[in-house]
Nucleic acid binder design. Structure first.
Length: 419
RNA sequence: GUGAGCGUAGCCUAGCGGUUAAGGCGCCAGGUUGUGGCCCUGGAGAUCGUGGGUUCAAAUCCCACCGUUCACCCCA
């Protein structure tokens, strides 16, 4: 027997209401803020990720699904959405549009990890990006959007963690200071942090080991080393957020696991949870498009994990609207009635009424049971008697009331009952 | 990549050394010759994850493998 590959899963009909709920909120949010939909390929040139997300990050070093196609080109299932959005921005000359360009996307992303609660090899992200404008007001807008997204989902107990990690002007100096600080504790570092010290020092800050956290506590903070431009920017972001009444907590150890971030980084997480619980995150990436060969172009964005959102919706027992059910189930008795029933079903569907047409030539009892489990509001019954009268029997499956309805009036009757 | 728990019908679960592996949900049939839901009766459905070992005897004990879940790590 075949099974879905490890870390992947089917979303069965009974689960779909949650997905629809989240997707609808995402789409209406983007409409509200005038972000436009962008659909992206599932795989990209592998280098798109290695060059932007960065070597030394787990995503690139050990989590990419890389393969060669028949031409020998090295491709990768996408590990995130921001770099592909920027690639599309450059490829299609979207820099010629009025800036900033505001886009959103939704779809699967792939990372080769060991699955656990809220972590999969294929998961789904919803993200939005604003390209071509360095205004801190745009950082604030993106954070506000993220926040409003979770509010609209009726999730509670969340917090926004906010930090600034500087730019190419000020970060080198900071990293130097950070390395010096850690160098004096070299023998007390965990093995992972020893590697981080040389490969990706920023990540030293978010090690969860108590012994390393001690060292991180006294470590210099990125915000202490911001250049003038970055400091002013960060202050503005905070001021704008305050103006918009968006709550946030400064977290000087928030660094994010991707290399392309500059200045603002933020994360939305549930209260009192550990490391792997982040619901979404984002930030500014003013150097990313240049890395991809474009003119220097600032950008800021956010992405959220749909599985984790749904996990939290369930944990908080949020009811979601059920998927629509059929209006009527059409039962028939005998071949002649079957043909008439098929015609009626067809007409009703053309009138926009969702119908389940019985099949299988079984008894009425069986058909009624089907009607019941289909969730239909009505059963429409068509047998010899009805054929003779040119009128069907319409039974309300909620109340059990049942009437004879002329064949010409079925649509009208069913529609009336819908209100 | 590391560690721990768990693998019994489509789903949930009982059985934890001894004859035909038990129950609930769901499914099918019947209780109405043309009427669902509730109820009643009956039925189908399980190589007890796979392989090996211990034993007179293994779903039950041991080992390996596979799968899965959770945690670490990292991230959505």
């Amino acid at each position: 027997m075949y099974k879905a590959p490890r870390g992947t899963f089917d979303i069965l009909p009974e689960e779909q209401a949650y997905w629809k709920y989240v997707e609808d909120k995402a789409v209406s949010l983007c409409r509200l803020y005038s972000y436009q939909p962008l659909s992206l390929p599932i795989f990209e040139d592998a280098q798109l990720f290695t060059r932007t997300v960065g070597g030394g990050t787990d995503i690139v070093d050990k989590e990419m699904y890389v393969f060669r196609d028949k031409s020998g080109q090295e491709l990768a299932l996408r590990t995130e959405g921001t770099a592909p959005v920027c690639r599309a921005y450059l490829e299609h000359g979207l820099f010629n549009l009025a800036q900033p360009v505001k886009l959103y996307y939704m779809g699967p992303v792939f990372r080769y990890e060991r699955p656990q609660a809220g972590r999969y090899r294929q998961h789904h992200q919803f993200g939005f990006e604003a390209l071509g404008d360095a205004d801190p007001a745009l950082d604030a807008e993106v954070i506000q959007m993220a926040w409003q997204f979770f509010l609209s989902l009726q999730l509670s107990g969340l917090s926004i963690q906010l930090n600034s990690i500087g730019c190419k002007l000020c970060r080198p100096e900071y990293l130097e200071a950070l390395k010096q600080h850690y160098a004096s504790y070299a023998q007390r570092l965990c093995p992972d942090c020893e590697v981080r010290l040389s490969r990706n020092p920023l990540r030293l800050l978010d090690c969860k080991k108590p012994s390393c956290q001690e060292i991180a506590k006294t470590a210099p903070k990125p915000t202490e080393y911001l250049c003038h431009g970055c400091r002013v920017h960060f202050e503005s972001v905070q001021r704008y957020l305050a103006t918009l009444s968006i709550p946030f907590e400064l977290n000087s150890r928030l660094v994010r696991g991707l290399d392309y971030y500059t200045r603002t980084v933020f994360e939305v997480e549930p209260q009192g949870k550990g490391g792997q619980s982040s619901l979404g995150g984002g930030g500014r990436y003013d150097e990313l498009i240049e890395t991809l060969g474009g003119n220097p172009t600032p950008g800021v964005g956010f992405a959220a994990g749909l599985e984790r959102i749904i996990l939290n919706l369930k944990a908080q027992k949020r009811a979601v609207r059920a998927l629509p059910r059929p209006v009527a189930f059409i039962a028939y008795l005998g071949e002649e009635a079957k043909i008439e029933a098929m015609k009626i079903a067809s007409e009703l569907r053309q009138a926009g009424i969702p119908i389940v047409m019985a099949t299988g030539d079984k008894g009425l009892k069986w058909q009624m049971r089907q009607a019941n489990s289909s969730g239909s509001r009505y059963a429409v019954i068509l047998g010899k008697e009805e054929l003779a009268n040119r009128a069907v029997t319409v039974r309300d499956l909620g109340s059990g009331e049942q009437n004879s309805v002329p064949m010409t009036d079925i649509a009208k009757t069913l529609k009336r009952g819908r209100e």
